[in-house]
Write a protein that binds this DNA or RNA. Structure first.
Lengths: 225, 225
DNA sequence: CATCGATAAAATTTCGAAAATCACCACTTT
DNA sequence: AAAGTGGTGATTTTCGAAATTTTATCGATG
């Protein structure tokens, strides 16, 4: 038994490995919307057996990133302008609700988490836009938005928000080809951050809604052209 | 090849069969919260192989009805007073949003669907409360609430609402042992129906929220005793 | 020329068993 | 007694191939 990572309890099962990889590849657009997911191909790509692969795909069906058609296999979920709008709308609903509660009830450790994640986000925003820096930026963006809502009591709100967020993230990747012109996301983040620290619920929610809507609009336009 | 259902395209795969059965059994409390789901046991119970079983369980993980612990199998999701409250809160959020849009934009066919499903619900409510009639009632209740929100444009709202609804439903089954005293759900449904037909958005949402909150409260109390 | 049907190829789904891991229990040591 | 130690049976996870179904190919026919 060769244990490459010496003493870590990262006993990751093949299913989990495949799940994470396929998930990332779908979100980042390496597996295109609507494309067929043949077990034979995926077996080769991720070097895992058919069984763990199918389990991973089944989990992704639950996440709605993959659809399964009886007796004719798995496909990556389709992307469409209508769906981005929908995703954006529901993200707004969930994220604003969670943000509101966070602003009203967040304690010191929540605030510290917001400050820290915002700081890391600004650092990432300052770097040049190489492919891997863009991935880094996406990660920091995720952490920032997650930190903002993290003070809510509701596990369900957090989990559903995360699910929808990742769909929105996929659309961001899909529309990355188009240089979405006149948008200063760093400034948008700064404004949200400011309102959050001031605990200005109305302002923070309005700015977040704007922020999300801009992403939605940008992706929707990039897609219908 | 013996084709029992002559000419229906109901080519249901073993995975789908297991998925549906396990799902129902979890929701109806035949598989208790927190209980271990051993593949050997389930294989016997549902007479399907290990592979389709594990795929079904993986899908249920995505639905959050089952949790998987690395290298130590699957368990039915725990139930707790805190979780019902959470589920109820999120159901309120999603359901009211969808209901609002339905009232504002629902056309004739939506209204007809509401009328029909309400009628079937009242018929079921009129019957005696035998175990199987209770199951029937649960089905009609589901259809009624689904009809109410069905005019929304948002697929995501509908799907997420359905997911959360089923968790709420599970809590209803779990708290059925306790006769929840002074509650006239038929009257609550009637009031909601009336407000919906009048297209009174405020009233319909308020009544629905009350309706959901009562269920939440009843389940929460039944659980903490 | 399009359509239909039979056949072959490809893909999905399922099975039975092997490999890896965990849980439990008796046993030793301090 | 408490805490470690090792072994054994049960359980989870994974594999390789068989069974089943879909998809593609290719003539023959109207």
């Amino acid at each position: 038994m060769n244990d490459l990572a010496p003493n870590s309890d990262s006993t990751q099962t093949d299913t989990e490995l495949a799940y994470g990889s396929i998930r990332d590849d779908i979100i980042q657009g390496h597996l295109q919307p609507g494309s067929k997911l043949k077990v034979a191909d995926l077996r080769a790509r991720y070097s895992v057996g058919a069984a763990p692969l199918r389990e991973a795909l089944s989990r992704l069906v639950g996440d709605r990133l993959v659809v399964q058609q009886t007796q004719r296999g798995f496909r990556v979920k389709e992307a469409s302008p209508a769906d981005v709008e929908d995703v954006g709308r529901v993200r707004n609903l969930l994220e604003c609700e969670a943000l509101r509660e966070s602003l009203l009830s967040g304690k010191d450790d929540w605030e510290a988490r917001v400050v820290a994640s915002y700081h890391r986000l600004t650092l990432a925003e300052g770097r040049s836009k190489s492919p891997e820096n863009l991935r880094e930026l996406e990660l920091r963006n995720n952490e920032f938005h997650e930190a903002l809502v993290s003070a809510t009591q509701s596990r369900w709100l957090l989990e559903l928000r995360a699910q929808v967020y990742h769909h929105h993230e996929r659309y961001r990747y899909l529309s990355r080809t188009k240089k979405n012109s006149s948008r200063d996301t760093a400034a948008e983040h700064a404004a949200i951050y400011d309102a959050v620290i001031r605990r200005d619920v109305k302002e923070a929610c309005a700015l977040t809604t704007d922020h999300i809507d801009r992403t939605t609009k940008s992706a929707s336009e990039a897609m219908s052209s």
